[in-house]
Amino acid sequence: MIELSIKGRGGQGVVTAGELLVASSISEGFYGQSIPFYGGERRGAPVTSEVRLSKEPIFLHRRVYNPDVVAVFDASLFSVMNPLEGLKENGKVLMNSSNPRKVWRETYVVDATKIAQDIGLVIAGWAVVNTAMVGALANLLKEYVDLDALEEVVKEEFPGKLGEMNAEAVSLGYRGVKKVD
């Protein structure tokens, strides 16, 4: 079993990101859990979603305290909180950033904002980064998430043209992820 923590801001699609990963893993015959944490969320406020992926049934319902992977949707979160709290020593961090910076022993980066903007995934001035981030995460979680299955799930979740655009973001995120040395 692997545990993830997805950190972002209200409106960035943090909860949907977790659900897409879980749905993809389940469509492959595995098990998964997407656990959103709801508080007084509003646009721009820090939001967390947690994910478990497993090849065996999952019994736990507690929250995730020591994730194996943390995905940070917005690097500015570091100025208001520690998004890496509890991360395992040998865990991985995936950052959405145009500025590769090592924040953990194993850090990966993808410019999800640019991917979203290039495709035109912008709502009310906000780049919708979740699908590019999910694509990048799929690359780090190959044991549980298959890229083709994920693209199918994305097309099912977003009907029509929007589905094509988001599937493209997934694919570009998957290919655009880089390890920071």
């Binding site: 977790g18 659900e19 389940i26 998964g32 859990q33 997407s34 656990i35 959103p36 319902h61």
Partner: peptide, 12 residues
């Protein structure tokens, strides 16, 4: 069924 813990958690 437990609020949020089950209502909002996605499972198989």
């Amino acid at each position: 069924f437990d609020g949020f813990i089950l209502t909002h958690t996605m499972e198989r």
